[in-house]
């Protein structure tokens, strides 16, 4: 199975009558295993809605969403919740770590919710932290971590338990560009290890890490897709 995420004709409409707003219109998108895809668009373009629908946090008004080969429509609520815990990881702009829990406890939460015994969940969480260079930071509370470390904890939480669809919404948040770059290095590495990563951002320096960059405008995806130019084109003095 190659496609990890498929959106077919996804439309999302909020409100009714005169107050009706079409956030997404007829979106078709397939993200394969091993792929890092970025969606760029200005604020209000529907980027975040695209991500919440892809992650089954919201239902489309019409169209279908397929995650890991399974259509979300018609799936019972608890089945969807289980799919979210086991297959889908989220990385948010503001990290969303629980302040009263240590780093390793934050990462272990989705595993424990899924019924894994606490001791084993902690061991797996600690391993995920170590994989992101945070082996020594597991016992620290979020307040004791730097912004870059907090986001790495959030990424560990998103991928722990071998989840293969990672959805990231402006993951570098307020981090400076060098720390933002290290977040993108991690997400690219996660994709290379066999996950599908979808990133929504307005920051082209982050999007440039992607294999494909899509442009979203007023809820529609453009048919123009950016894929890396050959290095030889960079040698021309006036490439753009």
């Amino acid at each position: 199975m190659n496609a990890m995420l498929e959106l077919h004709g996804v439309t999302k409409v909020y409100g009714e009558g005169a107050a009706q707003v079409t956030a997404l219109q007829d979106i078709d998108l397939t993200v394969r295993v091993g792929e890092l895809v970025a969606v760029m668009g200005p604020s209000g373009s529907g980027k975040s809605t695209l991500l919440t629908i892809a992650g089954s946090l919201e239902e489309p008004t019409s169209g279908s969403v397929v995650v890991a080969g399974r259509a979300l429509a018609g799936m019972a609520y608890d089945q969807q919740a289980r799919l979210r815990r086991t297959a889908i990881g989220y990385v948010f702009q503001d990290f969303n770590l629980l302040p009263g829990l240590t780093a390793v406890e934050n990462v272990a939460i989705p595993l424990e919710l899924d019924g894994m015994p606490a001791r084993r969940a902690y061991a797996v969480a600690q391993e995920a932290l170590a994989g992101l260079g945070l082996a020594e930071r597991g016992q620290h509370f979020p307040d004791d971590l730097s912004g870059g470390e907090r986001q790495r904890v959030a990424i560990a939480r998103a991928v722990v338990g071998d989840r293969r669809l990672v959805l990231a919404d402006e993951p570098s948040g307020a981090l400076d560009s060098v720390n933002g770059e290290s977040i993108m290095r991690l997400l690219a590495g996660i994709a290379a290890q066999g996950a599908a990563v979808v990133l929504v951002t307005h920051d082209a320096k982050l999007a440039a890490w992607a294999d494909r960059v899509l442009f979203l405008h007023d809820g529609r995806l453009s048919n123009r897709v950016a894929t890396p130019a050959g290095v030889e084109t960079l040698l021309e003095p006036d490439a753009p």
């Binding site: 440039a208 890490w209 123009r224 897709v225 890396p228 084109t233 960079l234 490439a239």
Partner: peptide, 24 residues
């Protein structure tokens, strides 16, 4: 405008690949 945006992003992707494949 979008055609130019696409091409500029493609150049940025190519530069990012150079950085990604280089020794950190």
């Amino acid at each position: 405008v979008l055609a130019h945006r696409q091409q500029v992003v493609e150049a940025m992707q190519a530069f990012t690949r150079i950085k990604a494949s280089a020794d950190s």
